[in-house]
Design a protein around this nucleic acid. Structure first.
Lengths: 239, 239
DNA sequence: CTAACTTAGTTGCATTCTGCATCTTAATTG
DNA sequence: CAATTAAGATGCAGAATGCAACTAAGTTAG
């Protein structure tokens, strides 16, 4: 404390090095239940414990933080080509036993079909109701991701990304109902999908797998495929 | 490139130091126009240029990134006691001439009355339509903040924070109209405020300053005062 | 072969929500 | 004290929403 004025003025000028990590919450639906992806940690701390795919930011290697998150997801989970959305930043001394750090958290929604290779090579899915045993503040990160996704899901195109490339309206409705946790009126749902118009019927293609009338197949319109939600622009700008 | 395997495995284990800053977008209404706050930069680069209040994160000094942003806002702009909401993280090599960095951006909405002291000591207000001359990627940060606030403003309690502690419904309606950029039907607005019920009339108190019938004074209900918006929980968790 | 069953998808209607015009209230101003 | 102004309430028409009932198109059981 004996040289505080010097310390303060210096502190205002010079950057302190900050331990900066990224973590990814990858969400999917497995047999009707909402799940997130974990990978076993390769290093201490928490070696061997299932954790969110995450790792250090490497400025020399990564164009920006999105690139960091994409690299980590590719290297740790073997997953590529998904669109990541910024979730939030978590920070402080308590979240990592090694000391003060920040984690820039990202999230994405993918159909189970896109995870087959990853699941065969060590990626684990866990239901979102089960947040036990997670290292660091990963339980909190998943909790925030769930809140975000659920609050954005009411009649946005976000949940469509949990469906495969083609799907029927009843299937899509079931996805919304799982995320929102409540039943939706069939007619209202169809009217809303018609009005919002981010999905389109695939002419002449039907799902005839059930013992009943076949259902029209739909797909997400092209302009909604590149990002998770067009109302998300505010969080997509971390350049 | 001659020792890449070593470099890669090391890169996965060890943290690289990252230059980490915070920037604050403080928004207010001045004479009916939407404005953001700037302060002249004290140091190079861009010394003397008006910029968002911002600075380096100091882990030894700051409990977490919210504390960093609060410290910066207090030290650079003399503003305290406002509730900051996370906006987004901006990152990359291009945003700062000194090289690769990240900025965790925060935003807040305050009534002009709360800025009187700050405005007397160097803080500048500029209309949101004018993003010219800003250093770093601050124009982009303000643009994203505007998008975020506007998209959250449709019948949320967010715009109320631009009003002083007490206000009339016509005044509040004018605030919403400024933010949303379009007129709102008076009856619909009042019905919605009644339904959402985040403001309450102050019994027996009226604004009689006009040459017409006095208007009932309202205030934000207590439980909505501590944060900007109750629907924002997802971004309030950076611990 | 056909009736029963199941789910897809539509139609009609009652109820609720929303926008707009009009009316009333309570102040100031000339 | 009439005219003016803006606050605030009322009534109603049209749109949006929720629900029940209906039709459509397949499979399955007898």
């Amino acid at each position: 404390m004996q040289d505080e004025s010097y310390k303060k003025s210096k502190a205002e000028m010079l950057p302190d090095p900050v331990v900066c990590t990224v973590d990814v919450v990858l969400l999917t639906l497995r047999e009707g239940s909402f799940c997130y992806a974990l990978v076993p940690r390769e290093q201490e701390p928490f070696q061997g414990v299932a954790a969110l795919p995450g790792g250090f930011v490497h400025p020399a290697e990564d164009k920006d933080l999105r690139a960091s998150a994409e690299r980590v997801l590719r290297d740790k989970a073997g997953i590529q080509g998904v669109y990541l959305e910024q979730l939030a930043v978590f920070s402080g001394v308590a979240r990592d036993p090694r000391g003060w750090s920040i984690s820039v958290a990202w999230y994405t929604l993918v159909p189970l079909e896109a995870l087959q290779a990853a699941l065969a090579t060590g990626v684990i899915l866990r239901e979102v109701a089960d947040l036990g045993g997670l290292p660091f503040d990963h339980a909190e990160i998943v909790r925030v991701a769930l809140e975000r996704v659920r609050s954005k899901s009411t009649y946005s195109s976000l949940p469509v990304h949990l469906c495969p490339a083609t799907f029927t309206l009843p299937q899509l409705q079931a996805v919304y109902e799982t995320l929102l946790g409540e039943p939706i009126n069939k007619v209202s749902f169809r009217r809303k999908m018609e009005e919002l118009a981010f999905v389109e019927p695939i002419k002449g293609e039907f799902d005839s797998s059930g013992a009943h009338r076949p259902a029209q197949l739909y797909r997400l319109k092209a302009k909604y495929r590149s990002r998770l939600s067009l109302t998300d622009r505010g969080m997509n700008s971390g350049g």
